[in-house]
Design a protein around this nucleic acid. Sequence first.
DNA 1: GTTAGCAGTCAGGGATAGAGAGTGCCAAAT
DNA 2: ATTTGGCACTCTCTATCCCTGACTGCTAAC
Lengths: 335, 335
Amino acid sequence: MLSVRKRKILCLLVARYIETAEPVSSSDIKADYGEEISSATIRSELAKLEEMGYLMQPHVSAGRVPTAKGYKVFVESIPTEGGMLPAVADMREYLDRKMDEVGDVIRTTAKLLSDTTNYTSVIVVKNIGEVLVRDVRLVDIGQNKALVIIITDSGILKDCIIDLPADMGNTYLNTAMELLNRMFSMHTVEEIKELVDHVEDEIAQYKMILDQIITSLERYQNRNQEVIIEGTSRLLDVPEYQEEADRMRGVMSIIDHKELLTDMVGDGELELSFKIGKDDGIENGSLVTATYRINDNQQVHAGVIGPERMDYRKVVTILKNLETTIKSVMDDKED
Amino acid sequence: MLSVRKRKILCLLVARYIETAEPVSSSDIKADYGEEISSATIRSELAKLEEMGYLMQPHVSAGRVPTAKGYKVFVESIPTEGGMLPAVADMREYLDRKMDEVGDVIRTTAKLLSDTTNYTSVIVVKNIGEVLVRDVRLVDIGQNKALVIIITDSGILKDCIIDLPADMGNTYLNTAMELLNRMFSMHTVEEIKELVDHVEDEIAQYKMILDQIITSLERYQNRNQEVIIEGTSRLLDVPEYQEEADRMRGVMSIIDHKELLTDMVGDGELELSFKIGKDDGIENGSLVTATYRINDNQQVHAGVIGPERMDYRKVVTILKNLETTIKSVMDDKED
DNA sequence: GTTAGCAGTCAGGGATAGAGAGTGCCAAAT
DNA sequence: ATTTGGCACTCTCTATCCCTGACTGCTAAC
């Protein structure tokens, strides 16, 4: 629906605007165009592109500036197989430092991403699929409370503290643990819920414990979404925002309401996701994320947040490189 | 070292500047002064105050603006017994919502603080004093790993995963646990370190476990400092920062490097702490914190971060109110 | 030590003018 | 039917000027 020439002109314009931050004129494009073409021709094409909503003019005697819609055409044209950037060659070094947990890897990755792109970075970890319970342990911690440790196929759940009946005997906990393991082991949360509803009788006296554990499991499965943001102050480096602080607001409000991000990052199937401008939920801003699957149950969305006039090429290249780097580091951790 | 009249003039000036954000002239002060005094007299006092470093002039024919030093004199003059603000009357409501853990209380408090003051809020939780170990549990989680649960007098440590020797027998863990409890129970971390160094022989075969646990305990004692920041985007509401984004940088860099905050919040003994300006580590910004002790082992520093021209009176009042509110909520949680 | 008065300084706003950039449109060429 | 060259037009940007208003610092009198 966009002629080859229009697309080429549009992309050249966006590329130049990203570089110079100034409205692009017809003669600018003529200079970049390669083949011979007159500026008048370009002008008429620009007029049409503007009419179609890809461009806009700050004022009548200025060049053109891309709209969110215009940027989107541009980002589609970026080859995702971009070459290695010199700056990202040493990503591996960052990540090779000894790290105890996956959480550390994520946190470091966020820093790395912010440092290499010079934008504010964002990482969202999502649980996908069902959690399979492997083993359940109960640890008495005094004061009629117990700590529940649930070993699942995607990690260990250990933040669940439950209340115990006051008159509990000594063997009570052990029996409960046995029962729990018999019932829960190798089942998903959904299955466990079913089960508990059906065999009321046998477990009546442990009902209190069971309910608390199931609540906790459900919470784990549903809202275990971590959002990490690094390099907030890099927003200040963006010239657009320096001139008018108001423009920063759209981006800032997202940083303040991290929970919004979980829905804004890619939808899982897409490798790269671009959210640009108000219609996508970021006024005067843009969010580029890549989706990585680190294991069967967890998905990581990593990306950057910045102005609409973002260096998408660089960001895409870095995100692609990050994928291979993360994969290799994670694989090492498996051993 | 500052005459009564100079102090009065300085405080009137700061108060007015905080309100109007505009340089204050000698006649402005004359209007606020109460008693009869000529503007010429005030001018000569202002000149001296400027010479002493409490004030500055943006330009020669403008009024005066306080320096960081000037603000500090002002904040000393704020009565800490300020009355209840209408806006804070319902703090209790915020905090009354059911919250599972101390962590939740803290997080909600941060939001509350940001909402009531309209500044970015900051909360730092510090461990003070020695951690006393009460009980140690080991839970086998498969793959030659165990989860260590340490119940201390100030909380439960449950994020420590240790490696086990590969050829471990079935009773190994139980024996180790018994040994650990015998050795650790009711001792501080320092004492435990001593102990382990001395009775090498008996425990040789459990050395591996012990070392890992001690490392973990030390880390818990030292760096268990949580820093929570809420309402970052409120920085954008500050007029000073809107005009010149560069000024925001000082404050932003602190938000980006939370670890800096642990040293900047009050020194423990002081009830309220004011850090204003570059010399205090915040260029073009100011950090006001109050210190609350929530139990024998933990200290909470709560405060706000904003421009030098902050509404200190309001902030102080709110922080004072927060103290009573937090105390009452925490006491309820004890039950 | 305080006050009144006066001269001096400077920011801020409005008006004006010229330069430069870039477009839109039209008529001619392909 | 598309492309091109040319031209008139529009609008921003910058500089300059000037004026006004706001304060101050200073001095001399009280």
